[in-house]
């Protein structure tokens, strides 16, 4: 039977291996460049529709947002060969929350502004697009860091 000290040396090598594997995976996760742009456009169209239209159109727009986001996720999964888990570490969790709040805030804000402020609605839509893209890249970066540091179940 293997001694505990022999096992310890082996264990250190295994822990180094775990760190390397996490580092490698952290480089693999993250969305393709087009993912955040696509998501930004979907959020922006919902902001515009909520600002200038009402009733059925907002529902249609919401459907486009949900369907489009699903298609983007499936395409990203296919392109990267990896399906990231839902936010997993402290940084990724925080950024995902901020990202959702910004999108919901912009959609809600556009509804408050209404048709009388088309210019402001358009600015809000552009702002939400940019914020979605920038926060998306920040989220990817946070996710990579969380995985590399092992902020996960493993």
């Amino acid at each position: 039977m293997e001694s505990d000290s022999g096992k310890s040396v082996d264990a250190r090598g295994a822990l180094d291996d775990i760190r390397r594997a996490r580092g490698w995976v952290s480089e693999r996760v993250g969305s393709p460049w087009w993912f955040h742009g696509g998501l930004g456009l979907l959020v922006a169209q919902q902001v515009v529709v909520n600002g200038v239209a009402e009733g059925l159109w907002t529902l249609v727009s919401f459907g486009v947002l949900v369907l489009g986001a699903t298609v983007l996720v499936l395409c990203a999964r296919r392109a990267t060969g990896v399906t990231p888990t839902w936010p997993r570490g402290p940084r990724a969790n925080a950024l995902m929350a901020v990202r959702m709040m910004v999108a919901l805030g912009a959609i809600w804000g556009a509804a408050l502004l209404g048709r009388e402020a088309v210019g402001a609605v358009a600015a809000l839509a552009v702002g939400s697009l940019l914020a979605t893209v920038l926060l998306g890249f920040a989220y990817d970066s946070a996710l990579r860091q969380d995985i590399a540091e092992g902020s996960d179940a493993g």
């Binding site: 996490r22 060969g81 399906t83 996960d152």
Partner: peptide, 20 residues
């Protein structure tokens, strides 16, 4: 070693493709 690496990679993701 190979199984350990596989498990660590899978723990960091929901699903991973064979080629990865």
């Amino acid at each position: 070693p190979n199984r350990l690496r596989i498990c660590v990679a899978l723990a960091a993701t929901a699903e991973t493709e064979f080629s990865v």
